[in-house]
Structures are given as structure tokens and as C-alpha cells.
């Protein structure tokens, strides 16, 4: 099912970050967001996740706008942002379980996800002992631990070694083969093929001064 946004604009910290932005993603495709720092890649991902509300425009699935049923939208997406959502006092498995079970993930899928992200053997290690790369992988393991058609990934390969980047690439490829969609904000080439690229700088608004008339 298609997911798209029309005429989106977003204000962050009193500044208009982008405006008039359009996008559409179909099953099996991937959208790569590029643009310099501060161009609004993270803002757009958060808008897509409905964590941030767009100042103008709207988001919709083929069967209806996101705003009509936010919970249904949440059930259709995985968001992996800059923050890991990991608890130092919980073990690797418990950390993953917390989020996977909320989205209907089974024990079998959780074990498989840990395997895919090369975290086998770490199941009972508390979160506080993980390295930055391992934390990142555990965070990405959420993608495989329960099903959702739309993946929103913010710089997914940060802090990962080459073998783990390969694992992430395979994960995304499998997801797409199964009819999933992925939106990836990144400034490095992940080597993912057949993607559409959306450059945020194309939607940078003209500077406008709404308080201009105040003297």
C-alpha cells in the first residue's frame, strides 16, 4: 500500500525548515533522504513517524489520512532514530522484548532478529555493557523482531563496522523483497540499489519574516 505526503512544511525552533515537500513510497521501494546538516532530514522522518506534526500539508496511506487513525499508522511503522531506547539495567533480550512485544513480535522472531544483527550470545548481557556499535545493532534489531511495512531509519549505519553494515543492507533488501518500504536519512552511500533520492535542500523555503510589519 502506498504511503505519501503532500505539500508538507515544518517549523523547528521558530525556523521554517522545509516547505512544499512531496513524497510517495510504494511497496518494495526505498527512499533515501539527503541534504546537508540542518536541512531537515531528521525533521522529515519525525513528521513521517507522526512524532512531529507538520505545520502545513498532510500525510496519508492509500486507505486514509494518518491523522484519522494515528494508532493504525504507528502499527505500520518502525522508527529507528538517533537514540537507542535501550535500558542499561535490562539485558539485551529484555530490551528487545519490551518493544517487540508491543508490536506483536514473538519469541521466535526476537531470537531471529538477534541472530540477523549478529547479537547471538549476547542475549543475557545487561545493556550497560554494550559498545556504541552493539547498541546500534540492538536498536536496529527492532526492525526484524516484529513486522511493519514502513521502516523509518535515521543514519542507520552510524558507529557500525563493515560486517554490520552488510547485515543492515541485507535486512533492508529482504524487507523490500517481502513488499516492505524503507525511508533512510543518510549522507553516506549505503550501497542500496534501486532507490529514489529526495534532497531536502530542494525544499528549503525562501526566508520570510512574519514579524516584518512590527515596528
Amino acid at each position: 500500500m502506498r504511503f505519501f505526503g503532500e505539500n508538507l512544511s515544518c517549523v523547528r525552533g521558530e525556523r521554517l525548515v522545509f516547505s512544499g515537500l512531496e513524497f510517495a513510497i510504494d511497496p518494495g521501494t526505498a527512499l533515501v533522504l539527503t541534504g546537508s546538516n540542518g536541512s531537515g532530514k531528521t525533521s522529515l522522518l519525525r513528521v513521517m513517524a507522526s512524532l512531529t506534526h507538520p505545520t502545513a500539508g498532510h500525510l496519508a496511506w492509500q486507505d486514509g489520512p494518518v491523522a484519522d487513525d494515528p494508532e493504525r499508522h504507528h502499527n505500520r511503522l518502525h522508527y529507528v532514530g538517533h537514540l537507542d531506547a535501550l535500558k542499561p539495567v535490562l539485558s539485551v533480550r529484555e530490551n528487545l522484548e519490551t518493544w517487540a512485544q508491543l508490536h506483536g513480535g514473538t519469541d521466535k522472531k526476537i531470537a531471529l532478529a538477534l541472530k540477523k544483527l549478529r547479537l547471538e550470545g549476547f542475549e543475557n548481557i545487561p545493556g550497560r555493557y554494550l559498545s556504541a556499535g552493539q547498541r546500534r545493532r540492538l536498536s536496529l534489531a527492532r526492525l526484524a523482531a516484529s513486522d511493519a511495512p514502513l521502516w523509518l531509519l535515521d543514519e542507520p549505519t552510524i558507529a557500525l563496522d563493515a560486517a554490520s553494515v552488510d547485515a543492515v543492507r541485507t535486512l533492508i533488501a529482504e524487507h523490500r523483497t517481502a513488499g516492505g518500504m524503507a525511508v533512510i536519512a543518510t549522507n553516506v552511500d549505503l550501497g542500496i540499489t534501486e532507490t529514489t533520492t529526495l534532497n531536502l535542500l530542494d525544499f528549503a523555503p525562501a526566508e520570510e519574516d512574519v514579524w516584518e510589519g512590527v515596528t
Binding site: E14, D209, W211
Partner: peptide, 14 residues
Amino acid sequence: LARRARGMSMAQLH
């Protein structure tokens, strides 16, 4: 006015 001043300096920074 304060907000406008803030906006102007932010635009400059940008």
C-alpha cells in the same frame, strides 16, 4: 519585536 530580532539573527546564522 524581541521575536523579530531573534528571527533576524537566526536567519543571519542560517
